[in-house]
Design a protein around this nucleic acid. Structure first.
Lengths: 188, 188
DNA sequence: CGGTATTGCATGCTCGGGGCATACAAATCT
DNA sequence: AGATTTGTATGCCCCGAGCATGCAATACCG
């Protein structure tokens, strides 16, 4: 059997990607009871933004400052997040997860994993590994800077991702491009 | 090098998927000058919904009837679509693409292809084939019925997809589940 | 054949997400 | 101290999404 034309393969990849995106978004919304950018905000907080100031979160989410303010307002209203004043710089509002917020964020991450498992269950181990290797290559290639990397990783399970031990492809790709010292500690 | 744990692979697949989704959505919006569900509506019209009534389009897009009405309103206002009365059933408003609408829809499909090519360019041929094979399997597995299949295919390039010659994985998957005669022409 | 139910489209309304422009507060510069 | 910069919050608007409802055409049924 000769291989299908690339246009056909390409289209299938796009369709499967769209399906996964829909499912993941729905799962995140259901697991947190939140919609729009709020689930991603929660997960990003869990991953890297906890205790950071509001603008850093906005940058990582790829949202405007004002939008991020409203999202944090909502999370605070729901008791998932607290604003604490930065003792060093009084202008800054540091956003910290509450215990309940952490639980919700973890639930969102878990829900995403469940969906991915479900959708990918039909593949065999070799296929899953092949897709993962391709994904790693794509991430290394596409994460052109740290801000982009954080945006890509806005729904990541930071532990699984490898963020903690320097194995996150997006971060690695970004560092390579920016020629930062690879041990640089997450800049502002 | 031993293989990475599945949780790590899974997360990378999810991240790459999210990246692709963002890029495709942005490209569709830019190519059409439209936002929200409108680009998908155009592409679905081009693919299978041209000349169908409004509710069919709503079902395929996975949107409410009223939302679809507004989207069609907008497309009509922009001269991309026309409502024509169904001569058989006077209640129905058939939605047909104008020439300009067809051009826009084709532009959206092309933009999606460009993005997919760009993102996947870093892979070698074997990897692309492997990912495509995995995508096909996922689609066959996940398209549980025709409505779902159309939703999955709402951004598809219908020619490349294989819709026209019975090679669309989503449609095949749906037909298998619904045990419909495989040669059924599904409306249109 | 006339009345009722169903189907299909359109519209008013509300909710919420998103961003822009702006106002305000703290810190830094000169 | 005043001026500028940086960070946050708010008013405003646009638009996407759905629900409930209204209305028209068709289909069903006595």
């Amino acid at each position: 059997m000769s291989s299908a034309p690339w246009s056909r393969d390409r289209n299938r990849i796009g369709a499967a990607m769209l399906l996964l995106g829909d499912r993941v978004a729905a799962a995140g919304a259901e697991a947190t009871g939140l919609r729009g950018g709020a689930p991603a905000a929660l997960v990003s907080l869990l991953g890297w933004a906890d205790g950071h100031h509001l603008d850093a979160l906005a940058g990582g989410l790829g949202l405007s400052h004002s939008r991020t303010v409203r999202i944090v307002d909502g999370l605070e209203r729901d008791g998932l997040v607290e604003r604490v004043a930065d003792t060093v710089d009084g202008r800054r509002a540091l956003v910290v997860l509450t215990d309940e917020g952490r639980r919700r964020a973890e639930a969102a991450v878990a829900a995403r994993s469940v969906v991915l498992d479900d959708v990918l269950a039909v593949l065999d181990d070799d296929q899953r590994r092949a897709v993962a290797a391709a994904a790693e290559r794509v991430l290394l290639d596409q994460a052109v800077d740290r801000r982009t990397a954080r945006h890509i990783c806005r729904l990541c399970d930071v532990v699984a991702c490898g963020h903690r031990d320097g194995d996150c492809p997006a971060t690695r790709g970004a560092d390579r491009r920016e020629a930062l010292p690879p041990t640089e500690g997450e800049s502002r």
